[in-house]
Amino acid sequence: MGAGGRKARAGAWTFPLITERTLPSVTDMSKPNDLVQGTLDLLILKILAFQPLHGWAISRRLKTISDDVLQVSEGSLYPALHKLEQEGWITAEWKQTENNRRAKFYSLTRLGRRHLERESASWHLLSSAITRVVRLSEA
């Protein structure tokens, strides 16, 4: 089966489930997808900045840090991780977990660190600007 099967998205019979490429869904917000897409990258990089982690640990960390506000669907974490890896921002290594199971640990590269700095700077800029705008309308 060489072709056809894999990239099954277009065509007559596609399931609604497959067509919706939901990345993170954010509670209490309508769909600011682009914003959140970039944000997920930022969050992952930030989490990995402290220590190398595997995917499962990253998803737990995401949950606890954001107080369940940011609910990243379990599945969509991995495409995001792989994308970051392909960009050269994080690098992966198979290691034993504390429970002696094999898992893929991701860690930040020098490039990733630099990217994180840049991105968090621009995030600060953006969020403070938005905060100001929101306050303005309240006043």
Binding site: K7, L17, T22, E74, G75, S76, Y78, H82, Q86
Partner: peptide, 27 residues
């Protein structure tokens, strides 16, 4: 919770950006 396991795998594969080539080799 995985929200479509195989589909996510496919998404992850897409990030490799070698799809055009591997598809071609398949072909």
């Amino acid at each position: 919770a995985m929200d479509g396991l195989e589909q996510r795998k496919e998404d992850a594969r897409d990030t490799r950006r070698t799809g055009w080539l591997t598809d071609f080799l398949d072909d």
